[in-house]
Amino acid sequence: MRTALVFPGQGAQKAGMGRAWRDTASWPLAAEISEHTGVDVGELLLTADDDTLRRTDLAQLAVFAYQVIVHREAAAAGPAGEVAAYAGHSLGEYTALYAAGALPLADAARLVAARGRAMRRSAERTPGTMAAVVRLDAGTVDELTGRVRAEGPQVWVANINAPGNLVVSGTAEGVDRLAVLAADSGGKVLRLAVGGAFHSPLMAAAADELRTALAAVEFAPAHTPVVANVDATPHHGGERWRDRELAQLTSPVRWEESVRTLADELGCARFVELGPGRQLTGMIRRIAADAATVPVESPAALTAPTSPQAP
């Protein structure tokens, strides 16, 4: 059975998430990532509280490190079936690139650290927020955000996660105005506790800053396919990943389309989620209902990787 390995993004983190993996053979990777980034990753995974992990740069590095450790354990345990492709939601795309062989660990870790810092600084300079929109389809939300921008406030579609699961990003004024229009159309806007207007043009300064870090790394000319957030298309290698990662900061995450690509175009019938929690598993089950989903939240989950999550 062809398998896709998928990695969640920022927001999946939680205090103490590394404790279940502390006694595994892969735990020393935390120290290795710490050396590459100058941040005590072990402390983030074991003792950092929720307030600390809400800081964008620290949250991203903690989630990345967690996923690297879990991926190494999963690789050793051997997820059943052929690993046909990888994908990650936002930040998770960097872990996907590492796991697929597109980047060595040192470069991936440094890029994640640089990305988190750039996004945090950009959000401080240009404050913004994000919100979930429920009970409306993607076309309607896109139309409503366009109406808001025509009035002056700024808001854009940021994540197209699954049917009925969308996220918008923009200024507080823009999100407030969208909430009014959404209610008039039968929808509802639920504000999220995030540090900025991610995946929107308000992150342009972050893209400018990240460009320097991306120029310092070399992507493998060939690797296992990774389905990119920005175009929901599988890519097998090459330097164009620099452009995709820059565009990802200011463009929507096309997760629903990405899952369809994995399931329909690449024939993946099993999705193994490597990350704290089940952030992606629920989305995937709404997109590819016939696929098996396997969330790996502890070492025990690796003993039976072929068992799909029960409906």
Rank of each mutant, 00 (worst) to 15 (best):
V157C: 03
W255R: 00
H235C: 05
Q13P: 13
A20T: 04
R254Y: 12
P225H: 15
R191N: 05
E73A: 06
A291P: 07
V227I: 08
A96R: 02
G146Y: 14
D49M: 07
V227D: 01
E93V: 07
A292G: 11
H236M: 01
R286V: 06
A20W: 08
D57F: 06
A4V: 06
T212E: 12
W255A: 02
R19Y: 12
G81Y: 06
A289L: 06
D264T: 14
P234F: 15
C268L: 04
V226K: 11
V259A: 07
D184C: 00
E35D: 14
R242Y: 13
A109E: 12
W255G: 00
H236E: 03
G18H: 13
Q248F: 14
L97T: 03
D208N: 09
M283D: 02
P104M: 01
A113R: 10
L266P: 09
P234E: 08
E257H: 02
A179I: 06
A182C: 03
A304Y: 15
L97W: 05
V39I: 11
S307K: 15
A179C: 03
G88S: 14
A150K: 07
L202F: 10
V39W: 09
T56L: 03
A162I: 01
H235G: 01
D51L: 10
A232Y: 09
L181R: 07
S34L: 03
A182W: 10
Y66H: 14
D264E: 14
L246S: 07
T56C: 04
E265L: 11
A263L: 01
A85R: 07
P104W: 11
D243S: 11
H199C: 07
G116F: 12
T52P: 01
Q13G: 14
V294R: 12
H199Y: 15
P28W: 15
A158L: 05
G164P: 03
A108I: 13
L136A: 06
V226S: 13
A132N: 01
A87H: 10
